Structure formats: C-alpha cells, structure tokens
Simulated assay, not measured.
Amino acid sequence: MLFKVITRPTNVAAVKKVAVRSFASQSTTIPTPAPAEQKTINPKKYGGKYTVTLIPGDGVGQETAASLKDVFKAANVPVEFEQYDVSGLTSEDEALFQESLASLRRNKVGIKGTLFTPTSRLGHKSFNVTMRKDLDIYASLSLCKNIPGVQSRLSNVDIAIIRENTEGEYSGLEHQSVPGVVESLKIITRAKTERIARFAFDFAVKNNRKKVTAVHKANIMKLADGLFLRTCRDVAKEYEHHGIQFNDMIVDNTAMQLVSRPQQFDVMVMPNLYGNIVSNVGAGLIGGPGLVGGCNIGREYAMFEPGCRHVGMDLLNKNAANPTALLLSSVMMLRHLNLDEYASRISNAVYETIETGTARTVDMGGKDTTREFTAAVMAKL
C-alpha cells in the first residue's frame, strides 16, 4: 500500500451505492443521496487501488491516523492515501486546506480527524464546517451503540444520530452591528430540511429501524425550528406505508431523556447545532468519543470521520489516544468502496480486541497505549 503525503510547506506563501455500518455484529446501510444516473460519485481507482484523501487533523489526529495506516497495511487494503497535514491551529494553512479540498474533489472519498477551530474573534473560520459547506456534504451520521467489553452506565443503547451539516447556527452569518451588539443568523430552509429528513427516513427503511425522532425548539423559535418540524412531519407522511413511527421532541427534553432512558431512541434527525450536542451526549452514554464511528455524506462526496468530533489536544503526543473511532469510520469507508471483505476483517479484529480485553486504552478502562492497541488489532487480523 502506498502513501502520498503532502505536508505543510516551509514557506506557506509559496504554496445508488451504499456504505455499511462498521459494527461487526450488525450491518447498517447508509443511503447515498445521489441519483442512480449520476456517475460522478464513483471514487477514483487506479491499478486496482482506490485513492482516498486523508487529513489526520489536530490533537490526536496524527497518532490515530498512523494507527489507521498500520492496520490498513497489515490487512493489505487496496487503498492509497493522499495525506494532507492541514492544521486548524494557524490560518497559514489555508492554501494547504484548499489543496486538500481539490484532492477530495478528485477522489470523491476521504477520511479525516478533527481540525482545531480557534475561539478568538480574530481566529479563522472552521475548516471542518467550510469543507462540508463548500462540497455540500450535508448529512452527518453518528452511530452510538454499546460495544461489548466496554463498561458504561447504561446498556442497550443503539442510536443513529443524523444532523443537517450545512445550515442552522453554523451558517456563519454573523456581524457586529455596533460595539457590544452582535447579530447571528440561523438559517433553516425547507429544501435542505426535506433532504435531511428523507435521508433519515431512508436510513430507517434500509436498516429496519422502527422510529424517527425529530429534535427541535419550535416552541420558542416558531419560524425557524417551526419550519424544520413541519417539514419533517410532511416527509414522515410519505413513509407511513413503511410502518415507521415518527415523533418529535424539544431539544432540552431530549437531553434529559438521553441520559435517563436512551433506549427509547432509534433514529434521530435534527438541525446542525443540536446534532453536535446530542452526538456528544450519545458518545458519553457508550464510553467516550473514541468509540463513535461516523461519516458525512453528500450527493457527490463522502468524508468519513469519528462521529464525536473531539480534537484531543490534551492527549497530544502522549500515545494514549483511542483509535477505535477512526478505525470504525474507516470500516464504513471500506464498505462504501465495496471492499466488504477487508471491512469485515478489520471490524472483527477491533471488536474482538476490545471484547476479549486483549488491549484497551485508558478511556476503555485499560492501560494500553495507542501503539499497543494498534498492534493487538493487527495481530487479530
């Protein structure tokens, strides 16, 4: 397996297929929004190998990406990575970030860690959000399910969290009217709500899920969230003949219900900000952000990344990160590329390693390092 790595230059100025759930015991189909006649969704393949864009990300990104590459090499996966070491820690990486976007446009498929976004007023815009908006990768899926071998406070959790990726509070339309007064616009459109709602119901149909819950705050934001809720209700009527239940829940009640009785949820669909928060709560229910696989799907491009987007700056260079989330995301990517045999081998190896206690990182209650966990997974292959 070959790797093409594009690092940050010294002088910055110079510079209808389906994916399947990563869980070994249960395959989950991810609906691809592109119509069957659209041929441009096909990923690039040369000499029997797929070319995939890899962006390790900040924090623990380089360490988990190294684990991913080691496992792929050990499994002889026919994938060649174009690696771009983009960092959100500096705005000087804008040129390299644009190169990574061009790579993703060529390859159609990518895998990434989380890029850091500064919170200061003078900080640059989020590379993560920019990528989803520029390429219209509008559907985010996070899979929160208990993993055998990992202790958690609650059991029988199996939730698919689907969020709209391109509008809502993440529209980026804010300005300071006068000193001390900031206006921020939350954008909700019927067209984009319809497509994310249909994505959620298609997901439920393809995976024999029984219920879809729309999360909102329509009691207060009667126009914006009201439109989201009404649109979801309209779409739900189109799927009544499939026998899928539909209900809605206010976001603050959702938070309480998640930590008290999460078993009531099956598929959840919501606007951008709510989805970000709920996916983090879901990760906490099953044992932490290092266990949640995920992906972002658009009409033409697919970007796979951990479903709970934590940078992990506190674990930087400590060899303590849990690579499970990125490995599970990569399994989803392999199924998207129709490499099911490789996907199953890696998925089985990851789950067997965790369930048997062969190796567990600190967040799973063990003492093993990132490299030791990776070596254990490779041994299980």
Results as ranks from 00 to 15, higher is better:
N76I: 03
L339H: 12
S152Q: 02
K44M: 00
F81S: 09
S103G: 12
T90L: 11
A255H: 04
D266R: 00
S155C: 09
E82S: 13
R335D: 12
V251C: 02
L273W: 07
T28I: 06
T10M: 08
A200T: 01
R8I: 07
L185T: 13
A36Q: 15
L326T: 01
L227Q: 14
P35C: 13
A102G: 13
V215N: 05
A24Y: 15
I137N: 13
V18N: 15
K45E: 11
V77H: 11
T353R: 05
T90N: 07
G365Y: 05
T32V: 08
D234T: 14
M313S: 15
L154Y: 00
V259N: 04
A160G: 04
Q38E: 14
N280R: 00
L285F: 09
N165T: 13
A375Q: 15
M249S: 06
T29A: 13
G110A: 13
A36E: 14
E341Q: 05
E183A: 12
R335M: 00
L89C: 07
P148N: 12
L135R: 11
I220S: 09
E169S: 06
S103R: 09
N11C: 09
F116H: 01
A376N: 05
G366Q: 04
A224Q: 03
G357K: 10
H242L: 03
I250W: 05
P33S: 09
V259D: 11
L273P: 11
T231M: 01
T324M: 06
A36T: 06
N165W: 11
T90E: 13
L173T: 00
V109H: 10
H241L: 01
P35G: 10
V377M: 05
R106D: 11
H216G: 04
S140H: 13
A19D: 15
A65F: 00
L273A: 08
I137P: 03
G168Y: 02
T254P: 03
N219R: 00
Q98A: 11
E167P: 10
D70G: 06
A191F: 05
G123S: 15
S260L: 13
E63N: 08
I159R: 03
A376C: 04
N128K: 10
T231V: 15
A13Q: 13
E194P: 05
G290H: 11
I244D: 05
V311H: 08
F265M: 12
I111P: 03
E305R: 01
T189F: 02
P179H: 01
R233D: 09
K192N: 07
G288H: 08
T370P: 10
L326K: 05
G293M: 06
A379N: 15
K69S: 02
N319T: 09
V350T: 03
G312Y: 04
T7D: 09
